[in-house]
Amino acid sequence: MAGNGAGSGRIPEQGGDARPPWRELEGLRPLTLRECRRLIVVAPHPRDEIRAAGGLLRRLAARHASVDVLALTDGPGRTCTPPEGLAVPREQPPADLVVRPEDLTDPETLASVLARLDGLADSDDPDEDHVDTEETQLAAAYEALGVAEVRRHRLGLPDAGLAGCEADVVGALSEIVGFAEDPHGLCVLAPWSGDGDDDHEAAGRAAEIVCAAYRVRLVRWLDQAWSWAGPESAEVPWRRARQLALSETVRARKLAASAAFGGRPGRDRELPDGSAPGPREVFLV
């Protein structure tokens, strides 16, 4: 499939009833992970793995494979952009609190000042409400997918800064993979290291290092690549591509999982919610 086109390999503009170029991916061989009894997912941002591989997560969970998610950052995925024309409100920092000497002698004014200080202290509490909201959304998303249990390991690395933290990712993933009781039934799922997003590529490189060291099977998903690569693109190793066909029920579950995060679709209109082209997920093996 690779190399039969010229130029940059970008997906051409859609026009009229033209056949979408990704329809050619319908002929890909199916992805089979029959021996996978434990899946370790390397997720650069919250929601990444659900967008790109929610159908695969559901299938393996239905086969009673256990699922671990190594969450690299707590920041929002930059692929999760709001719909066109929807403004995202920005949180404004609280105004500085000015206390004058005479305020401290007026009981009513002093009480008001203390109340404001208490309010500011609560708002500065380190991300407790944010963490609860994020965990609630993730739990709801996995429940919508039909994945009953997920073990999450959070690193808290900087969003848009994973390229400088690859050693941390390698170390954390090595600890999980290296202590696996059944390495032969283990499989790692991570972004493709040529995806086009700095964080995704850093996560992919780290996964490649660990899987090569421990001789564990690695499956890679594509995300940003769908915005610049078509089936004619020689930059993508299409010979290693496999597909997982999604039923209407599974596609509906992925949309429901996305809704748990506010239902904000991805930036590409022709790729609803940033998922793989058409009723399938595509992976590189």
Rank of each mutant, 00 (worst) to 15 (best):
E35H: 12
L72W: 03
G194T: 08
L56M: 04
L145P: 07
R59T: 13
D197F: 03
G263N: 12
D168N: 11
L56Q: 01
S193D: 13
P30Q: 03
S8C: 09
G194A: 07
G185V: 03
V285C: 14
D159E: 14
D122M: 03
V282K: 05
P21I: 09
L25A: 13
L104I: 12
A141C: 03
D96Q: 11
L60T: 04
V219T: 09
A160E: 14
R100I: 00
S233H: 12
D74Y: 00
T73S: 13
S227Q: 11
V113P: 07
I11N: 07
S8I: 10
Y214I: 00
V98R: 14
D195R: 04
V216F: 00
L255I: 10
R10F: 15
D103C: 02
L222A: 06
R29M: 12
P94M: 07
R215I: 00
C187F: 00
S8W: 13
E235Q: 12
R23E: 14
D268N: 06
E143D: 14
V98M: 13
A276C: 14
G194S: 10
E135M: 08
V170N: 06
D223V: 07
V170C: 12
A260W: 08
R58F: 03
A62G: 14
P20N: 02
R154Y: 01
L222P: 07
V285T: 15
D103G: 08
R38Q: 10
E181L: 14
L244K: 04
G7I: 10
V285S: 10
R217Y: 00
E270F: 09
A62C: 08
G27P: 04
G278N: 03
L157G: 13
F261T: 05
G278E: 05
G230W: 06
L70S: 12
V219G: 01
D195T: 02
G263C: 11
F179K: 12
R58L: 12
L70Y: 10
P101V: 03
P89Q: 08
Q224R: 15
L284Q: 05
P279G: 11
R90C: 07
R269K: 11
D122L: 11
G146A: 09
V69Y: 01
C36H: 00
G55C: 04
C187V: 10
F261G: 05
L138M: 11
G278S: 05
S193L: 01
L33N: 01
D48G: 01
A213R: 15
S233N: 15
E175P: 01
A207F: 06
P83E: 05
E208M: 11
D129Y: 01
L157V: 13
R269N: 04
L284V: 05
R10H: 11
E91N: 05
V250Q: 05
R242N: 09
C211P: 06
V42F: 03
P277G: 08
N4H: 13
E208N: 09
L57I: 04
A190T: 07
T109E: 13
A62P: 00
E281Y: 02
D125K: 11
A206C: 05
L186I: 02
E166A: 09
R10I: 07
R151V: 13
G263V: 10
P21H: 02
L145F: 09
I176H: 03
A2Q: 10
V67L: 10
D199S: 07
L120Q: 14
A225K: 07
E270K: 06
L31N: 13
L244M: 08
